[in-house]
């Protein structure tokens, strides 16, 4: 698995698009600093961008890379190698190269700006953690979808719809439900529903860092426990890590069954 991971990582790092992707973050972050000159405000803007863009790019890139490397995969399949190693390596290659790109693209301007000495270091680390983990989750989902769908167009379409669902539609449905059932005790539901969506989880982590003063304003034991103590951070971090395992398991499971 490690050998295949190495190959695909090397292949990807040399690819032009991943380079552009990293440069995009580099320019974007630097631009933010030049325009706003305020560390905490830049972090908020970056968080908004991260929550939408990282999953989108990871989805598109994951799908494209998977379909593009089909011949390479077929070649590997002809070798006496277990399938989970091949696809596991592929998944790690794609997701980690995206994650590294994100880390460098966002991290370098911050380091030059002197993040280490400022009080924003924890907000910044939360941002990096979420960016990397969202890259992992969504590129994994894209590869899983690619594995399950032979048809390129169909696979690509489904991957985009999955992104759209998690990024926008899910929140819309959740909002509708919350408003519709506002007469009922929906505290647990409102937190529970967010755990089922990795983007919501990342957002909650960021909320816990930035909007803690607003979150403290809500009554109710469940909210108080979740937002007021470390419980929120622990639960959301664990759930995010659990979320990275889901596509990985999916890839391995589907690849075992698939008839190439």
């Amino acid at each position: 698995m490690f050998r295949i991971f190495q190959y695909s990582l090397k292949d990807l790092i040399r690819s032009r698009w991943i380079f552009y992707y990293g440069v995009f973050y580099l320019l974007f972050t630097t631009g933010l600093f030049i325009l706003s000159n305020d560390l905490s405000k830049s972090i908020i803007s970056l968080m908004n961008i991260t929550l939408v863009l990282v999953p989108l790019i990871a989805t598109i890139f994951g799908s494209m890379y998977f379909y593009q490397s089909r011949e390479f995969v077929e070649l590997l399949l002809a070798q006496p190698l277990p399938r989970q190693r091949i696809f596991g390596g592929l998944f790690l290659g794609v997701s980690l190269s995206l994650g590294i790109c994100y880390l460098l693209g966002v991290g370098i301007p911050f380091v030059f700006y002197g993040i280490a000495g400022s009080g924003e270091i924890w907000n910044f680390l939360t941002l990096l953690f979420n960016g990397v983990i969202l890259s992992l989750i969504f590129s994994g989902l894209a590869i899983w979808i690619g594995l399950a769908n032979e048809n390129k167009l169909k696979g690509f379409g489904i991957a985009i719809v999955v992104w759209l669902f998690f990024a926008v539609i899910y929140d819309g449905i959740q909002l509708l439900l919350l408003v519709a059932f506002s007469e009922y005790p929906i505290e647990k539901f409102s937190i529970g529903a967010s755990i089922l969506n990795p983007i919501s989880l990342s957002r909650i982590q960021i909320l816990l860092k930035l909007d803690i003063s607003a979150l403290m304003g809500f009554t109710g034991a469940v909210f108080k426990k979740f937002f007021g103590t470390n419980t929120g951070i622990i639960i959301s971090t664990l759930s995010l890590i659990f979320w990275t395992i889901i596509p990985f398991m999916g890839i391995i499971f589907t690849s075992r069954k698939k008839d190439f």
Binding site: V168, D171, Q174, V179, S182, I199, A214, T219
Partner: peptide
Amino acid sequence: YLINETPETVVLLRSFFVEL
């Protein structure tokens, strides 16, 4: 306005949908 009506919607703070 939404949060005043239904405080539990606070979990959707800063979400893309809400920003829209």
